[in-house]
Design a protein around this nucleic acid. Structure first.
Ligand code: ZN
Ligand code: ZN
Ligand code: ZN
Ligand code: ZN
Lengths: 133, 133
DNA sequence: TAACGGTATGTAATAATATAACGTTTTAGA
DNA sequence: TCTAAAACGTTATATTATTACATACCGTTA
């Protein structure tokens, strides 16, 4: 079998899957990804989920929890996914990553009364986008 | 078949499922709920999911998106689930609904630069609870 | 009271999402 | 070159959620 090396710190499967997500205008679901990479030799769910897990871990993509879908990170300062916020249109499903340093700071400094120290948060806003309004 | 009436505006199945969630100290998953209500004549997934959908819609319960699990609403002013926030312990999975009017106000008034008007948000904080710290 | 429409129910089948388990290969360093 | 960690390939299975359709109930109002 042919030799493979990492590009940009991503392994072969990670890169294939990241590229697909990164060039998609909309969030992609795991099985949509699977169907789209089968021509590249990725045949089974675990291959997709492993790459997704890793890409989420290193902050190259984010999971939209309410949709079970994945988007590429657009904000360069988001290497670790510890403070994520998204706006989601309930009509056209358009999703936009919110990078607002004030919001991020406000939430990162938020302390729960019950003595819990937060390491990470995820915020999802829902509404109608400009087009759908 | 026997007569059934609504109690507290909840239908029979809705009440059975709400009571189970409400008395649970931890978030419950749909199939855990299903297994626990089979003795009460609820036999199939759609019966559970329909009740869950309705209970979420009227704000009696909330879905923890990152866990696919459901908790009863603890804050009385949360009739419609349009502004939800939770703290989630990554070790023991304990989940706590955050009712903080300042936080809620701050986020409800947050406006996206790209002209989107938000109707609803969900915020999930992750960390270690007092016990697990 | 009878008819109507909206809501809820029961049931079977299936779709969609995600993980377990196991062996092999590749990679990055010591 | 040796080794351990990471990544890979594959099969099977677990978990979460929906479709589809027929039936029953409930409140309103003709
Ligand atoms: Zn990001
Ligand atoms: Zn839209
Ligand atoms: Zn609530
Ligand atoms: Zn804990």
């Amino acid at each position: 079998m042919t030799r493979m090396h990492k590009v940009n710190n991503l392994s072969k499967n990670q890169k294939i899957i990241f590229d697909l997500i990164n060039k998609s205008p909309e969030p992609l679901k795991a099985y949509t990804i699977l169907f789209n990479v089968q021509k590249k030799g990725i045949n089974a769910p675990p291959q997709v989920y492993r790459a997704l897990d890793k890409l989420v871990e290193i902050g190259k993509i984010h999971k939209i929890e309410s949709k079970n879908a994945f988007v590429a990170c657009k904000s360069s300062d988001c290497e670790i996914s510890k403070a994520t916020a998204f706006s989601i249109c309930e009509s056209c499903e358009m999703i936009d990553e919110i990078s607002d340093s004030k919001l991020s700071k406000y939430l990162s400094n938020f302390n729960h009364k019950k003595g819990m120290k937060f390491k990470r948060f995820n915020l999802e806003f829902f509404g109608l986008c400009k087009k759908c309004k």
